[in-house]
């Protein structure tokens, strides 16, 4: 569906006195994405995520290397590809600000040359899925950011794109709106088999929507793995909460660090390089008056930080 091979993109900037400086935004990036995959494309600011998305959509052409999206070369067949892909850019809007979303949807029907019957059917389905019936005739400027984002995604799906590119779709949203968007994206991919290519700084987006992660840093891919593999390989520690009947319980073991301690609870961090979790639990169960035990993985954010740190 998407095949990227040895992709390089250099930019040049010309100063007032015409001296040119060049820098590589993308350095020999290669990856392939299959139909229906949900891929998180992440990396710190300036890693080259947006540049890559722009090349995949045909906005920019590469300095060298090749890209095939749905069998097309994006920058050569940008318009033709436009009918097959959808784009959602969290900080941009494709809705007409002073008009209700339905007017933009009708305009997009013409832009994407969607047959009336198909359009009506698709619109009805999306209205129901994204629960936007009540805001369809409200002016866009009167919508909340979460409502607007739901409409943005609907606008991107009217022509039934095979691939949906999402650049920070949950940026600026409150927690409820974020949860809704993530649920809807997941549902969308599951029901229609739409391939998702998502960039985000919010690790919950990755965890709740995607099944594969590509990490980009300084223009190069530093990790490409499934979410499960990522967790397996990069979880270097676990957090264990112990609730006890006894007061001020102590726990000492190689590779274990006490993070927090109260009258009836203790929180420990287990370094999996130094010991294994089974041994620690075995010792923990020996504590007299142990009432409860909870084991936590570190947050996705922490895992990603570990990946960035190399």
């Amino acid at each position: 569906m998407i095949h990227v091979d040895a992709l390089v993109k250099n930019f040049t900037s010309t100063s007032f006195f015409r001296s040119k400086t060049s820098f590589s935004a993308i350095k020999a990036v290669s990856f392939s994405i299959q139909r229906g995959e949900k891929v998180a494309f992440i990396g710190p600011n300036g890693a080259g995520k947006s540049t890559t998305i722009k090349m995949l959509c045909g906005i920019l052409y590469p300095t060298s290397g090749s890209i095939k999206v749905l069998g097309m070369t994006p920058w050569k067949e940008r318009k033709a590809l436009g009918y097959q892909i959808g784009t959602v850019f969290g900080q941009r809007t494709q809705l007409w600000y002073h008009l209700p979303p339905i007017e933009t949807f009708d305009l997009l029907q013409k832009i994407y040359e969607i047959e009336s019957k198909k359009y009506k059917k698709q619109l009805d389905t999306l209205i129901e899925t994204f629960e936007i019936q009540s805001i369809l005739h409200k002016k866009v400027r009167q919508l909340s950011l979460g409502e607007r984002m739901r409409c943005e995604i609907v606008a991107s799906l009217l022509h039934r794109p095979q691939i949906l590119f999402l650049d920070e779709p949950t940026i600026g949203l409150d927690i409820n709106a974020k949860l809704t968007i993530r649920r809807l994206l997941y549902q969308l991919s599951k029901e229609y088999g739409t391939t998702l290519f998502l960039t985000s700084h919010d690790t919950a987006d990755i965890e709740q929507v995607c099944d594969r992660v590509i990490v980009l840093d300084q223009g190069s891919i530093i990790l490409d793995s499934s979410l499960r593999e990522l967790k397996k390989n990069y979880i270097k520690k676990k957090i264990i909460h112990l609730i006890t009947e006894g007061q001020w319980v102590c726990f000492e073991h190689v590779g274990v660090k006490i993070v927090d301690r109260g009258e009836h609870h203790i929180k420990i961090e287990v370094n999996l390089h130094q010991t294994d979790i089974d041994t620690v639990i075995y010792h923990a169960l020996k504590i007299t008056g142990l009432k409860d035990i909870t084991i936590e993985d570190p947050s996705m954010e922490e895992i990603i930080r570990t990946v960035y740190a190399g």
Partner: peptide, 8 residues
């Protein structure tokens, strides 16, 4: 630039 991928 974000308007470019559309078929218009």
């Amino acid at each position: 630039t974000y308007m470019l991928p559309r078929p218009i």
